[in-house]
Design a protein around this nucleic acid. Sequence first.
DNA 1: AAATGTGGCAACCGCCTGCTA
DNA 2: TTAGCAGGCGGTTGCCACATT
Length: 322
Amino acid sequence: MGRTPCCDKNGLKKGPWTPEEDQKLIQYIQIHGPGNWRNLPKNAGLQRCGKSCRLRWTNYLRPDIRRGRFSFEEEETIIQLHSVLGNKWSAIAARLPGRTDNEIKNYWNTNIRKRLLRMGIDPVTHSSRLDFLDLSSLLSSTHLNLSSLLGLQALVNPEIFKLANSLLLSNTENQELLLQNQNSQGPELLLQILLQNQLLHNQSTIFQQNNQLHNQVSEIPNCTPQNVSCSSQSMQGNAGPYLMNGQIFQENMMLPLQNYSYSASDASENSTIQSLNNNNNQNSQNFSFETPLSSIEEEKESYCSNFMKFEIPESLDFDDFL
DNA sequence: AAATGTGGCAACCGCCTGCTA
DNA sequence: TTAGCAGGCGGTTGCCACATT
């Protein structure tokens, strides 16, 4: 024979808990401790199901629960863990002291998930829905403004970007020479390098690709291979997502997860992305943390706002990306 | 000022697993 | 051995507050 039913569901109260009910539950658990949820409602004088009491305690009344907004670090942890664990909210909550699985789940569904969708990132697989290969050719075919290319820093591995910057400085000094050299494609080549090594990277082949980059760089006049650097220590022997300079990357994932916040050019709401912003302060806007922040949200929004502003042909239908 | 839309979140629902009588 | 429940968990709902029209 099995156990007797935990409770008779008839006549039991449902819905929001009253302060009086909360007080009864707290007092009872303070004396007897949590557990034995089947008998708890009767012993505590509550007209509730034991399951309801357990949920109320674990999700709301527990003294070690941390209320309030999620910190930037907590959000980063949630995203990283979700990329590994999926919707295992209890497992994620176990890594975030004071947070309940229900709270994390709600925060994901109401906040993070929507933000990822707006950015064209699948919140389930954490992979981008944008085909950056096509975007690469797209960018190559448009009038690429080098100063605005700097805005791509939010998209790419900072180490690779340093390389790009070095190349840029190097090439600028010999731009005329570069343009005369048919083997060198100037900024387009630079972008190709960026995309090949950052956006198309696969964890298992990242170092092989880096060697290719090394070779490519060697072919560029006035650019020495020692400029090439790739922070390998944070990637070695790591099959799953990995951290690099505070950004979270994952195999088949095009964007650093830390840059998920997104406010300005919302492709789901605007049929076209705003044209290039040639403001020279764009970089400092994206990466400066000097400005006092009124809220964490502002910090996250400002961190990478406007980071995806390209000149896009009108014929491009962004609905296809979403 | 009222109606409507939207977001956040507490709580419920139902399934699954492990335990127990 | 096994029927069936407790507890755990993820998905979903519905209420409320605030924003927008």
